[in-house]
Write a protein that binds this DNA or RNA. Structure first.
Length: 262
DNA sequence: ATGTCACTGAAGCAGTGA
């Protein structure tokens, strides 16, 4: 039986601003694979050497100000890919084959609000993503798609479903897009476990809490970061958790890291 | 209800995105 390896996915909301916490996460959690979203750093300024010194092989794609993704792996890359056809040309997707597993890192568009162009671009992005993921699943039995999907798949995935009804990230077209991804043959890993935070029971753990109000302590969050697994990946995996402590530390991201064991 | 954070360009703040 092969030893399991750990995967952590985290929307850091600026790698530079989050650098102390990223270092802490690497040193304390020692993920075999670390997928970062919203790095907001151009390739020329990406700290490739420093992260390499931590023992990672690295794939990254950045932009100035917006977006940006990085894929850190203790295992060497057997294949690597940046973006997919129809992704809109933004730095939102990385894919690699490591340790015999095909793993993809996603930062889906936010979509802003129903009726604006960004919302339509989000749905288009998902249409093309689904087509690409079908190919990934055809290529590798062990496939993982993880990251910030910017979709709350069900009403249970936000604290205030009534307020958010019909709004991003809870609209029916977004949820249909998410279910279409699952229909390709993927399982949303965190729906397979229940989680408890002190004093509050949750069916699925939230991963994001708004900066703008006192939202973390009363757990007024959303579950918009997910880890999707192919059936063989799921069968080979065991549950991880949301690393809530990283949302309580000084200068946190608005997202918490999520971990799974593969 | 519109309270925070991070970014950029440009000037010590305003606009944008999340």
């Amino acid at each position: 039986m092969e030893e399991p390896f750990s995967l952590i996915s985290w929307n850091v909301n600026s790698l530079r601003a989050r650098w102390p916490l990223v270092q802490k996460l690497i040193e304390e959690e020692k993920p075999d694979i670390l997928l970062l979203q919203e790095t907001k750093v151009e390739d020329a300024l990406f700290p490739e050497e420093t992260l390499g010194d931590f023992g990672y092989n690295i794939l990254f794609a950045g932009q100035k100000s917006y977006n940006g993704v990085a894929f850190l792996s203790k295992f060497p890359f057997e294949e690597r890919r940046k973006g997919f056809p129809g992704d809109g040309g933004e730095a939102r997707y990385l894919e690699g084959v490591v340790h015999g597993w095909r793993i993809a890192n996603l930062y889906a568009p936010n979509g802003q609000a129903v009726g604006v162009p960004a919302y339509d671009r989000k749905l288009t992005f998902y249409t093309h993503l689904k087509e690409h993921i079908a190919q990934c699943l055809a290529q590798e039995a062990f496939f993982v798609l993880a990251g910030d999907f910017n979709i709350a798949p069900t009403d249970a995935d936000v604290y205030n479903p009534q307020e958010l009804a019909g709004q991003v990230p809870c609209t029916e077209p977004e949820r249909t897009a998410f279910r279409s991804l699952l229909a390709q043959g993927l399982t949303d890993a965190f729906t397979k476990v229940s989680s408890t935070v002190p004093g509050k029971k949750l069916t699925t753990p939230f991963t994001w809490w708004d900066y703008r109000r006192r939202s973390f302590d009363p757990n007024k969050g959303r579950r918009i970061d997910q880890i999707l697994l192919s059936s063989q990946a799921l069968a080979h995996s065991r549950p991880g958790e949301v690393l809530l402590s990283y949302r309580t530390l000084p200068r946190p991201s608005d997202h918490a890291p999520i971990r799974w064991y593969l």
